[in-house]
Design a protein around this nucleic acid. Structure first.
Lengths: 253, 253
DNA sequence: ACGGCGTAGACTGGATCCATGATGGCCGAG
DNA sequence: CTCGGCCATCATGGATCCAGTCTACGCCGT
């Protein structure tokens, strides 16, 4: 038929809609928005304007609406009738509760993982553990610019816990675990570590201990270590959030 | 979190859905469809036609589309590109995994509930326990018609576990628990009990034991009993599904 | 008669249009 | 000068329209 104007004159077709991974346009929008929210590009508490997002992403409001609906179901944003969508900003209580569940799920998955883990998965776990130590080194040798350390730590942390969850073998548990990250974004944990070398070392040491327990096939120890590990991270995060929570996280002018 | 300047633009952080019931049309559709799916009115594996649903519910296709998108995020249906929405039909593996999480979450909530439960909640728990025994009586005195027994048992079971989850105090855990029911509907459990008086008696006795443990404030026992209780229900359900799964899993022509 | 190909139908997915509800500013009265 | 109500503006929510795509049926060729 007639050449559609939008064929190649599209301003910015989101990213790569042709990826076989994503079923349709809405899913790619969900992914993009979720990443932006988790990365903090879209600050918590801010409004998501359908028109603005549609224009920016080069689509109409319709797929944006559906994407927002899905993000609401995930718990990433809240929809207010006739008002719009707002990025949910987790309260201290939310953080405590979500991390409690993190510990519960990871402890459970780890207990199973200690028995079920494959050698490939164990290798990935070791690699992640090395990356933790690398991140410590990055931070130690960095002068001001901590982005590399953060990137390495973030990669290591994501991979490490993902492998444990995966090795646990319960796909629905994995899904719930992912959902938790939609409620309290991963990057918050890094903020809590606060570029403190000693804290990071302690964090790395805990991961090494967990790796060791899994390597020994010690289910009980794995569960305990994981639960305590998450608990410590939670306490640290809550303390940090309470401290910096004094000034308004919403935009000031 | 500190109150931001008197402008009410950022009132509450995250946890005030304002109204728990229905925010808008889409939410009411989600509720209706979810209930129909859980009740089995819409059989698993069947297609949900947007046009048909819209006409039947007296709305246009648009809110139906958004409702389906939300049901997909919940895991109740699956969306296939350019094909439509289909009610997901849980596999045996799904059931095993989901019930494993049921046990994990309920055990955890129960452990906390044993210490935190209020007297009102304990009353509700007792009432539910009585309703279980009533259901046993209903079934025993019924001749053929088991709907009353089912209704009572269903009410009792829903209330009993809901109270425990609620008493546990973790709202995110409660939300996850709800989500699990979207993946494996509640009514499946009744099918597994299969109108068998002895099984029902055993089930009621287990609930009585749990109630007793909570009443004594015995956290450890509560957790153990709950975990085992769910495990037994899971095993029974899996066995039942496997048995009846022999005849047409997919309808033959 | 059987299998492959082409076409018609139907349903989903995206875009545009309109109505409704909310917000914020402006004006008038006390 | 301040408070309250009215109105304009804007964003969301719902409906309708159009295009793309998958399926299924039927026809034709071997």
């Amino acid at each position: 038929m007639a050449e559609v104007t939008a064929t190649e004159s599209t301003p910015s077709p989101v990213s790569t809609p042709r990826r076989a991974d994503e079923r349709d346009l809405v899913d790619s929008l969900v992914t993009v928005l979720q990443e932006r929210i988790n990365a903090g590009e879209i600050p918590a508490g801010s409004w998501l304007r359908q028109e603005a997002l549609a224009k920016e992403l080069g689509v109409s409001r319709m797929p944006v609406r559906e994407a927002l609906r899905e993000l609401q179901a995930r718990g990433s944003v809240e929809l207010i009738a006739n008002r719009g969508a707002r990025v949910r900003l987790p309260s201290t209580r939310d953080i405590i509760e979500v991390y409690e569940l993190h510990g519960l799920l990871q402890g459970h998955a780890g207990e199973a993982a200690a028995e079920l883990i494959t050698s490939q998965q164990l290798d990935r776990l070791s690699a992640a553990e090395r990356l933790f130590r690398q991140a410590v080194e990055d931070l130690r040798t960095s002068d001001g610019d901590t982005t590399t350390a953060q990137r390495h730590w973030h990669e290591a942390n994501t991979e490490f816990h993902a492998v444990i969850i995966e090795a646990g073998g319960n796909k629905h548990l994995a899904e719930m675990y992912e959902n938790l990250h939609h409620k309290v974004p991963r990057n918050l944990t890094w903020i809590a570590l606060g570029n403190d070398v000693r804290r990071l070392e302690k964090d790395a040491a805990e991961h090494a201990g967990i790796l060791d327990a899994i390597g020994r096939g010690d289910s009980a120890a794995t569960r305990t270590l994981l639960t305590e590990h998450v608990k410590r991270a939670s306490d640290l995060l809550v303390r940090t959030v309470d401290e910096i929570g004094q000034d308004s996280p919403t935009r000031r002018r």
